[in-house]
Amino acid sequence: MGSIVPYGSSSPEARRDGGVAVPRAAPVHRPGEMGLGGGRLREECWPTIGERTRQRLAELSGAPIDWFAREDESSGDGRCYAVTLGEAGLSIAEPRVNTEHRPVYAITAFQFAPGSLRHVQVDHRPPPSTGGAPSSGGAPPDIGLGPAAKGVLGNLPPQAQELLQAPFASARKVLRENWYYEGFDHRLDALVLYLAGAKDVTFTTGTKIVPAGHNDATAHWSLTCYRASVARRIGR
């Protein structure tokens, strides 16, 4: 993965847990419903974005890590938006209409500081008897997440939830959040989720499987969690 290296342990807000830096204060959320009905998959949506826009996203994001595209319900005409995550940044293309009432795409990008991208592997393999995610205890800090984002996060392993939320606090809230997943009730073949703030971006990619004898609370996850510092923002 080139310049991507594992998370360090220099943060005073982190503790060592099995060799991985884990934040102390990040909340663990209750799992929400992750429906799988309707809509085109990302492979169907991606070609509709347009070659020039896709090229611009690639330029801004750098060497690719993951991506997704979905129908934009707010577009009014069935157009799609796209998200690319790479070693150089997080980039988003959203359908808009210009002053001449012509369809265009607005580009937003969070450019990473060189050398700041880190990653941690999270392989979550609980036995069938294990209960659900532990309670975070008390009211969690408000880092700007909406109810839907909290519900999706709540399905992830606690370690992944903590890593993704670690940089954010009430004074440094999440500005943008989004996710994509596809698969079946007993497995997700792809999951991508990002949280973006003024100073930091975190995201995760991976898969989930519910083995025989297990349920969603004891699903097995294979995830990679990333974190990078934001050096420059383009767009809103």
Rank of each mutant, 00 (worst) to 15 (best):
Q159A: 10
G76S: 03
T207W: 07
I92C: 07
Q121C: 05
L153C: 07
F168N: 07
D123N: 12
S9T: 11
L145R: 03
R172S: 15
G131V: 04
V192C: 14
A58S: 13
F203L: 06
A93D: 07
S116Q: 02
I107K: 01
S129L: 12
D216I: 09
V210W: 00
P157S: 00
V97I: 15
G144D: 01
G86P: 08
R24M: 10
V120M: 06
A198F: 11
A69H: 06
H119D: 13
I143Y: 08
I209G: 08
D123G: 04
A26W: 09
P157N: 06
V20H: 10
R79V: 12
R54V: 02
L164E: 00
G154R: 03
L188I: 05
H29Y: 15
P211L: 06
S222N: 12
G115P: 07
R52M: 09
R24F: 00
E182I: 09
Q161S: 01
S136T: 14
D200Y: 14
S129E: 13
S116L: 08
T207S: 03
F110N: 06
G115R: 01
H124I: 03
N215S: 14
V210S: 01
N178P: 13
F110G: 09
A196W: 01
I49M: 11
P6A: 05
G206N: 10
A149I: 05
T108W: 03
M34H: 08
R24P: 08
E177P: 01
E177S: 14
I49C: 13
P95L: 04
Y7A: 04
T48N: 03
Q161G: 02
I65W: 07
R176I: 02
I209Y: 11
P158N: 13
A217K: 12
S229P: 06
D216S: 11
R96D: 13
G154S: 05
G78E: 13
K173C: 08
F203G: 08
Q121S: 15
L90K: 12
A228Q: 00
A198I: 03
E73P: 14
E51L: 14
L156V: 06
V20G: 01
H214C: 04
R16D: 14
A58P: 10
V201T: 06
A58W: 05
V152H: 04
W46H: 10
I234Q: 14
E100W: 11
V122F: 03
D72H: 14
G19P: 01
A69S: 15
S116V: 12
G32W: 02
V20D: 09
A21W: 08
G19N: 08
